[in-house]
Simulated scan of single mutants.
Amino acid sequence: MRKKWYILQTFSGMEYKVKELIEEKAKLYDKEKMFGKILIPEESEIDLTNKKTDRIVVSEEAQVFVKNGENVKKGDLLAEEPPVIVKNAGIISEIKNFRKIIVETKDKKFTKTFLIPESAKIIGGLKVNSRIHAGIPLAREDGYEADLDGIIISVEKLKRVTIQTENNTKDVYLIFKDNFDSAAFRKGTYVEKGQILGNKRQYKAKSSGKVEIRDFASRKEIIILKTKISRLFPGYMFIEMILNKETQEMVKNIPYVINFINIGGTPVQLKTKEVKALLRLTGEEGYEVKESKLRADYVIGEHVRIINGPFEFFTGKITNIDLHKQTVKVTINMFGRETEVELGLTEIEKID
């Protein structure tokens, strides 16, 4: 007989304990072949109680390896700055240490970048998340004062390398200090066109969370928002099994189990599209993200068809629209109950 999918109702919070007990009992009674996957769908949501965020600032040329809304783990590669390559051959005429400090206003509408030579004797304590006010000095040397109120969002140590080219011009490069080989490149060193002056720079996640990407004219910001795991369907789990009187009673008699979701005492079997959504939600089945047109002329209350993602083939009603994030919330009928899901505007289409 072929295994089929059913919904099991349990005491909320005991889903994983029930899963463990089912697996133990199946093994004890030599019924393991009667059971397949047991799934407890979960989602990560932003933890509003945790205000701490990790933020990295990269150039517009940087390659970003994560997507907006994606969940990442500590140590995952987020982005990579390209190497700094010599444009024109010449001789290094000057190498100076600089500090790049990016300040964002409190309302997050404006930012300003300060490039300060270390020789100006930079004031101590200028660190990420430090507050500064207009008029305060950033260095002991005159001429380096803040001209806005805000919060420091990035501090980087740089090497400012000047090359006197063979064409009698000067090329200036800003290179991350950690990616510059001071032993190989000194004042007076001859460099050729195409030579790597600064190595690639990689940024990895310092903590786990959900990615938020902000695009600006000259940079990108990757923010990691702290998240917490929650059940998508508290008090419910999904079990693949060969259902007969013996296996049904075995599962029902396990502690913390309430019953199978049933109609007239007969457990309800999941529909094909529900199984597909379940497997995609839990990562058991991959899916291809299809290219589709972005349109923003949807209205709340409109019925739409889902054409991408875990809930492909479902239809539902729009309950919320966020044009800034390019997302909508749609209520669908799943597992016999109304469920609200968040989708991108490219994941839905109008129903003619």
Rank of each mutant, 00 (worst) to 15 (best):
P137Q: 06
K210R: 09
E60K: 13
N71I: 07
N88K: 14
G209H: 00
T227V: 10
G283Q: 07
Y190S: 08
I92M: 03
K37P: 05
Y236N: 12
R131V: 07
K3V: 09
V66G: 08
I318A: 02
L148W: 06
F216H: 08
I22V: 14
N50E: 13
I152G: 00
G194V: 06
F313I: 03
F185V: 02
R186W: 02
I348K: 00
G198N: 07
E192D: 07
P117Y: 05
K204A: 08
T266Y: 15
I348N: 00
I239A: 12
D107L: 05
R295C: 04
L78G: 00
G235C: 08
L225H: 02
L343G: 01
A89N: 07
D352A: 13
G125C: 10
V257Q: 02
V66S: 10
K159A: 01
V57A: 06
P83K: 07
S119W: 04
M237W: 05
V251I: 12
L77S: 06
K121R: 14
I222F: 10
F238D: 04
T227E: 13
I306T: 09
T346V: 11
F65W: 02
S44E: 15
A146I: 01
K37G: 09
M241F: 11
E291W: 14
E312K: 14
K220N: 01
N259T: 04
E42R: 12
E342A: 04
N333G: 08
